[in-house]
Design a protein around this nucleic acid. Structure first.
Lengths: 333, 333
DNA sequence: TTGAAAGCGCTACCAC
DNA sequence: GTGGTAGCGCTTTCAA
């Protein structure tokens, strides 16, 4: 793990100074484009630096000018399109501040997450992302580091977390289905521990707002296969269902596939609406209608809160740490 | 961009030492789990550190123990599934060495890439990824940094690059099509500057190996829409084509969509094979057959070469910097 | 315009 | 087991 080995000694600013026949400070001036230096001296220094292959140590520099911020972004699985979108949004928001983002993909393994947190703690200025660790565990590992969680409830004041509010978007989705004539609308909820999900609550509320009873629910693993089989289960038991709202886009894509295999044409025989707003949804056939999370806002919020935590400014409060979602109609509904 | 502001002075090891009534070295020992320290002393130090909210400076630590390696991964667009897979592979390979990966998404903008390279140069130990900059430009910006390019030809010895060799995989793909009875096989090539692509050469060779003339080619923008319209063009002019090989999976997915809209059922009326092996291909309908790039090998190779460059070991030669691709049959062919 | 000295926060190496 | 001292490589005063 060490970079050293038998490798040649590092070229330092002293070497450059010696070669150029000036002092270190002059080298520093030349390299950092400060004024107060003779043009020819500067050039001589630059030449020497180039010739020696000199590169300033980021550690030494960081030590004296404390102005580089790195945040660690922890995600369970970069290949999961949802996390990809979140990561991209975070990266984008961070770049606008000139921050560096160190990405850690824990491969969905919780032990890996612990290890990551441990290592990260001494390498970045703040941690953001999706953590599954219990709060006290995070606190222990991230000791003192600012932590911004995404889409996770937290109990202690120690953390900030960004909440996702899909209520309005789901309401719009259901309203759209109802306007299109649907009356029997089911949901493909997730199969996690906490049943039913908060998304199901939004669904039920939205149905109620339209004067409908919450439709039948089938539980789906969060995968395409999960969505497909959940749809089959749902339809087997409730053949009168003409539209489904899925826990997320992946499940919805599974539903699309399930419908096709069942001989139901989407959206004619079955309307499908997902949640998340993945770009992926535009690639499938038919393109997926979805309640799209505002990932840009998410990224911005994560970064903004991190910034406040870092500078000691007043952090955003619970009510401000929310990102909405809105109905994005494509063709599946 | 400065982290300081009016923020409270940083808690240093000295503060902890003073509070615990010991010397800095003892604090260091306690915190780094060295032996040679009394248990109660250690506890006292740990308590003090916790109470003060002390966190070691990564810069100071890095300065003295030169054992943390960070590589900058530059990609044009994390949301492009292809780059996502590459990034995931690189992250994975890097993690196995305990390296930190700072990800920079240039948003496909070349000026952004220049800026990124500039900034990166002083923040990481090596740069890897997809760079579109001309070589001398990269050299100037990355001055001295080890650079490992992916899937890009390079002329100067200054760089390493990983080449992708799809010849064998494409040959298998075409052989499979021919065995399935196809004789009129077209290609949806990319619409870049350098026409025809190397992938087309593999295609032509593979056709020749089967005793067939290279089939008709249509140029596609690298997008689903591009693939769709390229397929339509191709089929309009060559209605006898029963199978197509696409430049990549995205284009192939477009072809899938195009076929459906044309009323051609895949694979019955038209077989489609893509290139890249994106996980995404498994989600579409029908699941896409593809010549799958070995991304794990890619990631491993990138990291291995970077490691050698970093340590001054003998770098891998041109012939070793190759990753293969193999036919992955799903349902579209 | 240039250089000398001080110190960023930490760990390694040596005494004790 | 503990503390002193000496740097790691750089930038920032402050003098010259």
């Amino acid at each position: 793990m060490a970079s050293s080995g038998t490798g040649p000694r590092r070229v330092t600013i002293n070497d450059v100074a010696r070669t150029a026949g000036v002092s270190r400070q002059t080298v520093s001036r030349a390299l950092n484009d400060k004024g107060e230096i003779d043009v020819t001296t500067k050039q001589r220094v630059l030449d020497a630096a180039l010739a020696l292959g000199y590169r300033p140590s980021r550690f030494a520099r960081g030590l004296v000018r404390q102005d580089t911020i790195s945040v660690g972004l922890v995600i369970p699985d970069l290949l999961n399109p949802f996390f990809t979108e979140v990561a991209a949004a975070a990266l984008d928001a961070a770049r606008s501040r000139g921050w560096h983002v160190v990405v850690y993909d824990t491969g969905d393994r919780i032990e890996e997450e612990r290890g990551t947190l441990q290592v990260i703690a001494s390498q970045v200025d703040a941690v953001v992302g999706y953590l599954s660790q219990p709060e006290d565990e995070i606190d222990k590992l991230a000791r003192g580091l600012p932590v911004v969680l995404i889409d996770r409830e937290h109990r202690t004041e120690r953390f900030s977390s960004i909440r996702i509010d899909g209520e309005k978007g789901v309401r719009a989705a259901i309203a759209h289905l109802v306007e299109s004539g649907h009356r029997h609308i089911g949901m493909l909820d997730h199969a996690g521990r906490s049943e039913p999900s908060i998304r199901h609550a939004w669904f039920a509320d939205a149905m109620a707002a339209c004067g409908l009873d919450a439709g039948p629910v089938s539980r789906a693993d969060q995968s395409v296969e999960g969505g497909e089989s959940a749809l089959k289960d749902l339809l087997a038991e409730h053949p009168d269902v003409t539209a489904v709202f899925a826990f997320n886009d992946i499940v919805a894509i599974g539903a699309l596939r399930g419908a096709r295999r069942l001989g139901r044409e989407v959206p004619r025989d079955l309307a499908v609406i997902g949640f998340d707003g993945l770009q992926l949804g535009a690639l499938v056939e038919p393109p997926l209608s979805t309640v799209a999370l505002d990932t840009r806002a998410l990224g911005a919020l994560v970064v903004e809160q991190t910034a406040r935590l870092l500078t000691g400014e007043d952090p955003l409060g619970h009510d401000e740490l929310v990102v909405g979602a809105e109905l994005r109609l494509r063709e599946s509904a």
